[in-house]
Amino acid sequence: MSSPAVRPLPPRRIPFVPRSPAFWFLAPAVLALAAIGVYPMLVALYNSFHHYNLTDLASGTPFVGLDNYIATLTDPSFWGALGRTLAFLLLTLPIELGLGLFAALLLHRQALPRVRAIARVSLVIPMATTYAVVGLIGRLVFNRQFGIANYLLGLFGVPPLDWLGDPTLAFVSVMIMDIWQWTPFCALILLAGLSMVPREVEEAARLETPRWSMIFWHQQRPYLLPGITAILILRSADMLKMFDAVFTMTRGGPGTATEFISIYIQRVGFRIFDQGMASAQAVLLLVLTIVLSRLYIRYVYREA
């Protein structure tokens, strides 16, 4: 009699380890996000409820509850920095959005594909420039002695201006550099939205009415609203945490003219060394960013 065939045992599966290839493709990104984003946020949240001063580590980090938040909300300097940041956002973001929309409409009406390709590549250059380099460029452009800004004004007979020494002009100079860097981003996002409009619909609308404002409002605007929402969310978050370009360009000065909220938090955390207070301020800034994002989605994106 022949011996019965021995059936091989199925391979042992390690518990809690998924076999899906998608899991292994996503795992590195999830781990990087947890290490870079989630863990520091949890540490900041923990520190915000504790007394944590780098100059007084001998006393430990005792739990203080909401004391850091109360001290932050009653700090006039915090509200001053937040007010300057919101003023910068309210003044700069509409200009970037308006100029970006104007550039997107011009490129959308341009029929030559080579011109559009060159324009798109040119728009990427400011976006690819790092914040610190933008700040250094700003220091050179608005230098009182040899900056190109005063040179151009001199062609019209305007005397040299102390751009980085005057509080108002320093604020305006930071606005100009931010507009230069991020208007192309708005233009590219809005151009992508315009490219989604069916060509047949635009041609039919042009036959019915010659008014471009009617075509824009009824045919193109619905396709632009998702992009506008994305621009509002991303640029608002960037402006609220804007640090590198401003610190490199003005160091927050003169005085506190360009001391935005991120620079103030850095000063509290790494010059006064009060990590607990700085963490509470960072958490409040995160809450403000989330609230603004929800408002944008509710009142802008819902119209799409």
Rank of each mutant, 00 (worst) to 15 (best):
I176R: 04
V201E: 10
L155M: 14
S77M: 05
A187D: 03
F25P: 00
S173H: 06
I179L: 09
V141G: 01
Q110C: 08
A257W: 11
F63T: 11
R302D: 08
G98W: 04
I137W: 11
D75R: 13
S236C: 07
R13E: 14
F23N: 01
L66M: 13
Q110S: 08
M1S: 13
P167A: 09
R13L: 14
P10F: 07
T258C: 12
P226H: 08
P40V: 13
L45Q: 05
W24M: 04
L26S: 04
L207A: 13
I148H: 05
Q181N: 08
F102W: 10
S59T: 14
Q275D: 04
F63C: 09
P113A: 08
Y69K: 09
D244N: 10
A32C: 01
L57Q: 13
G276S: 14
A87C: 01
A87L: 11
R139E: 06
R302Q: 11
M242Y: 06
I70N: 03
L57H: 04
V291N: 03
V158C: 00
L99H: 02
I272H: 11
V38P: 03
A5R: 06
T130C: 06
T229P: 07
L295D: 03
L57D: 01
P4W: 01
D67F: 03
T248A: 15
R84N: 09
L26V: 01
W24Q: 01
L112T: 08
M1A: 13
V134A: 15
Q281F: 02
E200Y: 02
A32I: 08
I95N: 04
L106P: 00
L190Q: 12
L93E: 00
L107R: 04
A230I: 15
L86Y: 13
F260A: 01
A304S: 14
C186K: 02
V268K: 10
V121C: 02
F63V: 14
P62E: 07
A117V: 10
L90P: 02
V6M: 14
I290F: 14
V121G: 04
L224P: 04
L86P: 01
N47L: 15
L284W: 11
G37N: 13
I297L: 12
L225A: 07
L91K: 00
M175C: 15
A81I: 05
A237G: 10
I179N: 05
R13C: 06
D162H: 07
S20K: 04
G154E: 06
R120D: 05
P8T: 08
V283T: 12
I228A: 10
D244Y: 08
V124S: 05
L99M: 06
L240I: 12
D238P: 04
C186E: 01
L224H: 07
E203H: 12
E202W: 01
F273K: 09
M196D: 12
S20L: 02
